[in-house]
Amino acid sequence: MTSPAPLLDVSGLTVSYGAVEAVRGIDLTVAKGEIVTLLGANGAGKSSTLNALVGLAPRRARRLAFSGQDIAHLPTEMIVRGGMTLVPEGRRIFPTLTVAEHLLLGGAKHAGRGPLAETRAEMLALFPILNERLDQKAGSLSGGEQQMLSIARALMSSPDILLLDEPSLGLAPQIVDRIFALVSDLRSRGLTILLVEQNVALALEIADRGYVLVNGRIEISGSAADLMASAEIRDAYLGA
């Protein structure tokens, strides 16, 4: 492959909480415009990897580069301002803040009202339901609406790459389908996506490539089609 330097270039990433090593020296890359998925069982280190990439989990790495810049020692807020953000597991919306306030805070990095209003209008076009709920407290939204708000809040920072942690968690199947359609749509608009997802079949359907984490190490990696065809994956995750 003679692709240009990847947007996200990680090698030897280790995440440890005290004596517990959740991620043990993994290598991964994400090229611009790709959807890459990170698969694995509960506790394999998927969420820890995403949190570490944005500086919310304690991390060590041989190389941790985003857009060619070393981000190993940047605090979360600077990484987000630089164009990488995370939609956290469990949505983590602020229950007592309104939908409008979430969008305002999400867009905090935009200087001036013009770009902020523009991004906000884009989000409301993308998620019309949020437009109807602008003054409602986020805690009163349904699970699907909260997930959309969480994604919209992250997109308000106009990222180059979006890390998505279990967007389907606890949602009804038809809502999950809408969210995955949206993720594909976002990619076609040029957004790069690193997706962690329990629903392996769904993830491989929209992803270009995938990595499988087992006990904090990457055991298998390859194109989505290869992973889908792999006997190991089918036995372990697809239940076919």
Binding site: E77, F94, E101, G106, S157
Partner: peptide, 16 residues
């Protein structure tokens, strides 16, 4: 107000 609910996520908004 957001920080009182979830400080880590406020940092994810790019707020210092």
């Amino acid at each position: 107000r957001a920080a009182a609910e979830d400080f880590a996520i406020v940092r994810l908004m790019g707020l210092r």
